Measured scan of single mutants.
Amino acid sequence: DEFHFHWNGRDIRVRGDSEELRRLIEAIKRGELSEEEIERAIEILER
């Protein structure tokens, strides 16, 4: 699976399928994380 979302003017695409990944992306979409937490998560996910 590939998750695709927009954040902070960026087009983010992440491959993978796990419950943890889904929860993280939902939290990002709901605005539950700080900008710094989101940046760090995206860096890890894009590897």
Rank of each mutant, 00 (worst) to 15 (best):
D1K: 10
D1P: 13
D1S: 09
D1L: 11
D1V: 13
D1G: 12
D1C: 06
D1Y: 11
D1T: 12
D1R: 03
E2I: 11
E2A: 07
E2W: 12
E2V: 09
E2G: 09
F3R: 03
F3M: 08
F3Y: 14
F3I: 10
F3Q: 03
F3G: 03
F3N: 04
F3P: 03
F3K: 03
H4Y: 13
H4D: 07
H4V: 15
H4N: 09
H4R: 09
H4P: 02
H4I: 15
H4S: 11
H4T: 14
H4K: 08
H4A: 07
H4M: 14
H4C: 09
F5D: 00
F5H: 01
F5L: 06
F5Q: 00
F5E: 00
F5T: 00
F5C: 02
F5M: 04
F5I: 06
F5N: 00
H6I: 14
H6K: 10
H6S: 08
H6F: 08
H6Q: 10
H6R: 08
H6G: 02
W7Y: 11
W7A: 02
W7N: 01
W7S: 01
W7C: 01
W7E: 00
N8Q: 11
N8F: 03
N8K: 14
N8L: 05
N8I: 02
N8W: 02
N8V: 01
N8M: 07
N8A: 07
G9C: 00
G9E: 03
G9N: 04
G9V: 00
G9M: 01
G9I: 00
G9F: 01
G9T: 01
R10L: 05
R10P: 00
R10H: 07
R10I: 05
R10V: 05
R10W: 02
R10E: 04
R10G: 02
D11K: 06
D11L: 13
D11Y: 10
D11G: 02
D11Q: 05
D11P: 14
D11W: 12
D11V: 15
D11H: 08
D11C: 06
D11A: 06
I12S: 00
I12R: 01
I12Q: 00
I12H: 04
I12W: 14
I12E: 00
I12N: 00
I12Y: 15
I12P: 00
R13F: 15
R13P: 11
R13A: 14
R13S: 15
R13T: 15
R13L: 15
R13K: 15
R13M: 15
R13Y: 15
V14K: 01
V14Q: 01
V14L: 06
V14F: 08
V14W: 05
V14R: 00
V14C: 02
V14N: 01
V14S: 02
V14M: 05
R15W: 15
R15N: 15
R15K: 15
R15M: 12
R15S: 14
R15E: 14
R15V: 15
R15Y: 14
R15I: 13
R15G: 10
G16F: 05
G16E: 08
G16K: 05
G16P: 11
G16L: 05
D17I: 04
D17Q: 06
D17S: 08
D17F: 06
D17R: 04
D17Y: 05
D17L: 04
D17G: 05
D17V: 05
D17M: 04
D17K: 07
D17E: 10
D17P: 13
S18F: 05
S18V: 09
S18D: 10
S18L: 09
S18G: 09
S18K: 09
S18Y: 06
S18C: 15
S18R: 09
S18M: 06
S18Q: 09
E19N: 09
E19V: 13
E19G: 07
E19T: 10
E19F: 07
E19I: 12
E19Y: 09
E19W: 07
E19S: 09
E20Q: 11
E20T: 08
E20Y: 08
E20N: 08
E20C: 04
E20F: 11
E20W: 06
E20A: 11
E20V: 11
E20D: 13
E20G: 08
E20H: 08
L21A: 15
L21I: 14
L21W: 12
L21P: 03
L21D: 14
L21T: 14
L21V: 13
L21S: 14
L21H: 14
L21M: 12
L21F: 14
L21R: 06
R22A: 11
R22F: 13
R22G: 08
R22M: 14
R22Q: 12
R22T: 11
R22Y: 12
R22K: 13
R22I: 14
R22E: 06
R22D: 05
R23D: 14
R23K: 13
R23W: 12
R23T: 13
R23H: 11
R23I: 15
R23G: 13
R23N: 14
R23C: 07
R23L: 07
R23E: 14
L24E: 01
L24Y: 04
L24V: 06
L24P: 00
L24T: 04
L24W: 06
L24C: 02
I25E: 05
I25W: 07
I25G: 03
I25K: 03
I25D: 08
I25F: 07
I25S: 04
I25T: 05
I25P: 00
I25H: 03
E26V: 10
E26S: 12
E26H: 11
E26Q: 14
E26D: 12
E26A: 10
E26L: 14
E26T: 11
E26P: 01
E26M: 11
E26F: 10
A27L: 12
A27C: 04
A27H: 08
A27Q: 15
A27K: 14
A27F: 08
A27T: 10
A27N: 08
A27E: 10
A27V: 08
A27S: 13
A27G: 09
A27Y: 09
I28F: 05
I28T: 02
I28L: 07
I28R: 01
I28V: 05
I28P: 00
I28E: 01
I28S: 01
I28W: 05
K29E: 11
K29M: 10
K29F: 11
K29L: 14
K29R: 12
K29P: 02
K29H: 12
R30H: 14
R30Q: 14
R30W: 09
R30A: 15
R30N: 14
R30D: 11
R30V: 08
R30P: 00
R30Y: 11
R30E: 12
R30K: 14
G31C: 05
G31T: 02
G31A: 07
G31D: 09
G31V: 02
G31I: 02
G31E: 07
G31P: 02
G31M: 06
E32A: 12
E32D: 13
E32S: 13
E32M: 09
E32G: 11
E32Q: 11
E32H: 11
E32N: 11
E32W: 10
E32C: 06
L33C: 04
L33S: 03
L33P: 02
L33T: 03
L33F: 08
L33W: 11
L33H: 03
L33R: 01
S34Q: 06
S34V: 05
S34P: 05
S34L: 05
S34G: 07
S34C: 02
S34W: 02
S34R: 07
S34T: 13
S34N: 12
S34A: 09
S34D: 09
S34H: 05
E35M: 11
E35D: 14
E35P: 14
E35G: 10
E35C: 03
E35F: 13
E35Q: 10
E35I: 10
E35L: 09
E35K: 11
E35T: 11
E35S: 13
E35A: 10
E36T: 10
E36Q: 13
E36N: 08
E36S: 12
E37R: 02
E37N: 04
E37Q: 10
E37I: 02
E37H: 04
E37A: 10
I38K: 02
I38G: 01
I38L: 09
I38M: 14
I38S: 03
I38R: 02
E39S: 08
E39P: 03
E39Q: 08
E39C: 02
E39F: 06
E39V: 08
E39W: 06
E39H: 08
E39G: 08
E39L: 09
E39M: 08
E39I: 07
E39A: 06
E39Y: 06
R40D: 12
R40A: 14
R40K: 14
R40C: 05
R40I: 12
R40M: 13
R40Y: 12
R40P: 02
A41I: 14
A41W: 14
A41C: 01
A41P: 00
A41V: 11
A41M: 10
A41R: 08
A41Y: 07
A41H: 05
I42K: 01
I42N: 01
I42P: 00
I42R: 01
I42H: 02
I42F: 04
I42T: 01
I42S: 01
E43L: 07
E43D: 12
E43N: 06
E43I: 06
E43S: 07
E43V: 06
E43G: 04
E43P: 03
E43F: 04
E43K: 07
E43T: 05
E43Q: 08
I44F: 12
I44Y: 12
I44N: 08
I44W: 13
I44Q: 08
I44V: 10
I44C: 06
I44P: 01
I44H: 09
I44R: 07
L45H: 02
L45G: 01
L45C: 00
L45R: 00
L45V: 04
L45A: 02
L45P: 00
E46I: 13
E46Q: 06
E46R: 03
E46F: 06
E46T: 09
E46L: 14
E46D: 10
E46H: 05
E46M: 13
E46K: 03
E46G: 03
E46N: 07
E46C: 02
E46A: 05
R47C: 13
R47K: 15
R47G: 15
R47P: 12
R47V: 15
R47N: 15
